[in-house]
Simulated assay, not measured.
Amino acid sequence: MSRRSGEPPHHRNLTCYVNYGCRLPECADRYREWNRNRATAKRAGQWQPHVDAEPVRHHLRKLEEHGISIRQAATLAGVGARSLHPLFTRPIRHTVRPEIAAAVLAIDPEQATPTRIDATGTARRIEALVADGWPMANLADHLGVYRSYVHALIRRHEDGQKILASTAAKVAAGYDHLAGKRPAKHGIKQRQIKQARNLAASRRWAPTSYWATRMDVIDDPDFEPLYGVTRREIIAQDAAWVMRTTGLDRHATAQRLGVDKSYLDHAFRDHPQYAVEVAA
């Protein structure tokens, strides 16, 4: 193997002696001790040389495609992350200890992939805390996630994306700790509290008091919270569905819903996004 130029990155293992020609006394002693141990192991028939690192590197890349970082892979394999990082950082390591290779290659990406679940309950918990007056920026520390990720979790729910079950568990634990508590008593300024509540009100996010009696459905994506929705809007929604699916006119639809036609007309006028017209 040709010698590399420049200073060795460190003096903790044989790399500096073998690859960089380092001859510091402690590094030379380390190399001689390694040779003695190798000779002893060979005589005892216990010597196992390093193996090609490329299959390990390829498997780690495959694991990353499944959402498993190098650090997570090291944990699953029961080895230190420092033993895997040199496979990707310069100077690239081309061999690896056989026991490390075997442990990494034994990781099944399908079974080791972090569990992902529906984000509905996580988003609702965050929204409820915001409705209580907790700014998203201040929720991060309580929920155990990065600040930018708090809002991202809501976006992921809106986009129909799933999230890690471990993240959902963190948010649920933080929610249980904060639900019903007053943000002002935890150092949140009134201006921030008002801004958070205004944001929640503009998006009709239900507060923790709403969910207190509905915790059995907070994670249910099929349950539609009607917090902040007036009876008139509910009638408009129901009428729109009835008219589209049955072809009934407004008068017949109003009768089916148990309201006067004038009430239905007002409901559609107040909520034109639901207004439906059908042929007489």
Rank of each mutant, 00 (worst) to 15 (best):
A119W: 00
Y175T: 04
A279M: 10
H266I: 08
G133Q: 05
A239Q: 02
I234P: 00
A173H: 09
T15E: 14
M243C: 07
E64C: 08
A53N: 01
D216Y: 13
A206K: 02
Y149D: 01
H271Q: 01
E65K: 12
E127I: 04
Q190V: 13
G247W: 06
L24W: 15
A280R: 05
I100Q: 05
P272I: 09
I107H: 03
D260Q: 13
S166E: 15
H66M: 10
A212D: 15
A267L: 00
R97N: 10
L143Y: 06
A53H: 00
K185L: 14
L14E: 05
T75S: 08
N13V: 01
R244P: 02
K189S: 15
A239T: 02
A179S: 11
T245K: 05
R23Y: 11
I68T: 03
A173P: 00
H186E: 05
R43Q: 13
H50I: 02
T253Y: 09
R125I: 03
I188E: 10
P91C: 12
I235Q: 01
A184S: 15
Y146L: 12
F223C: 05
V130A: 15
K170A: 08
L143T: 02
R244C: 09
A131S: 12
W47S: 06
I163K: 01
A280P: 06
A172N: 07
H58K: 13
A173D: 12
R124H: 04
T122F: 06
D265K: 03
A279H: 09
P114H: 06
D260C: 11
H85N: 09
D219C: 03
K189D: 14
G67C: 12
D141L: 14
V242H: 09
W34C: 01
G121V: 02
R124K: 03
T89G: 04
D132W: 11
I193Y: 11
A201R: 12
L153S: 00
V259L: 09
I154E: 08
D29E: 14
R156I: 00
W34T: 01
C16M: 13
A77H: 03
Y146T: 06
K162M: 11
L153F: 03
D238W: 06
G80D: 15
R269V: 02
L264Q: 01
R36Q: 10
R61S: 11
P25K: 11
G174L: 05
A28W: 09
I107F: 12
I163R: 01
D249W: 05
A172D: 12
G174W: 02
T95H: 11
L139E: 04
A41V: 03
P109L: 12
E277F: 14
R97V: 08
A239F: 06
Q46D: 13
R57Q: 06
A165L: 13
P114C: 06
A81L: 10
